[in-house]
Design a protein around this nucleic acid. Sequence first.
DNA 1: CGGGTTCTTGACTGCCGTTCAAGATAGGCT
DNA 2: AGCCTATCTTGAACGGCAGTCAAGAACCCG
Lengths: 181, 181
Amino acid sequence: MPKNKRPQEREAKRGEIVASARALFMERGFEATPMSAIARSAGVTPNTIYWYFSDKDDLLITVLDELLVESWAAYRGQTASDDVDQLVWVVDGFRDLHLLISEIHARVEVSPALAAWHDRFHAASEGLLADELTARGVPEASLGPTVKIAVFVIEGLVTHGLEPAQARTILETLVAGMPSA
Amino acid sequence: MPKNKRPQEREAKRGEIVASARALFMERGFEATPMSAIARSAGVTPNTIYWYFSDKDDLLITVLDELLVESWAAYRGQTASDDVDQLVWVVDGFRDLHLLISEIHARVEVSPALAAWHDRFHAASEGLLADELTARGVPEASLGPTVKIAVFVIEGLVTHGLEPAQARTILETLVAGMPSA
DNA sequence: CGGGTTCTTGACTGCCGTTCAAGATAGGCT
DNA sequence: AGCCTATCTTGAACGGCAGTCAAGAACCCG
């Protein structure tokens, strides 16, 4: 195309690739989705994807960033009544990402770029949770460990696919055991 | 070989394959270990492995069973002073398995055999932990959720590779928040 | 010393992520 | 108008992977 191809068209095609990848990654998982399937779904040859993304991990990270931005927006617009309700809401939101979440944790050991994304994600969400728990009266001293525990429980609930009812009970027990001022 | 080849030799070769697989799986992880590397390390052609094991997952499950038996024996022989010490001991034992543990959770979604193993493992270890916590005074009513929380925290600590000191602090906070009689 | 089971292997298939070099496209410049 | 060149697309190919297959080697039992 032209020297300065209108970035509109470029971004449109790029966006289609990301959308296809996102849908397939969420539905079948990362490893189970070949580049060829993403390409087919986006109406493109596999090679074309490599013009827009350096490799499959790069595409995954782009998808994850997109999901992250949307989740963040949804979180801001969420009506958090109870403490437990808030955690339940988070777990519910992650539920259809459980395939990806498990695979991310496995791939972190093999893809430095993904490891960096994972670290950023944890830092951000733990910071958010820390604010929330501080406001709820968790003392500064035990804040760090309490945040980690909550994060690990959330991850466990999601990756092990526990039923909503059971997840709620567990989160209630978790909150009941949190240190308070 | 013979009709009834002395099972000694057969088991010896099978054992060598398992030992090689175990070492490589633990060192590099499951996905990063090709069958060819296991074969080379065992002094065998890749095809030979398929005489003893139906596929790579079958070999993995054999390795995991072996590790499980040894862990169980070590657990029985362990001197559990404190509550926290006990959990710290468990986390320490799992530490060099963190590659495998992450990969198991991802592969559970794709390999029914591995999923079955994972379920059995959780049932067994949660049963064990339930006994332990009951003896420590956790009331029957909140036993289930408390066990799940502990398991998820242990898995989180292992897969995220937290430093021993940090892990201990987190486990202390966890135990402090457990319901008591 | 044959025969049939147990074991081993070389050759192969199909799929994967990724690379490469050739081609198509179309604005900017003269 | 017509070339230049950067941008984009693709067919073909590579190397590595898990797993299959059919031919062969090994060796106890009759």
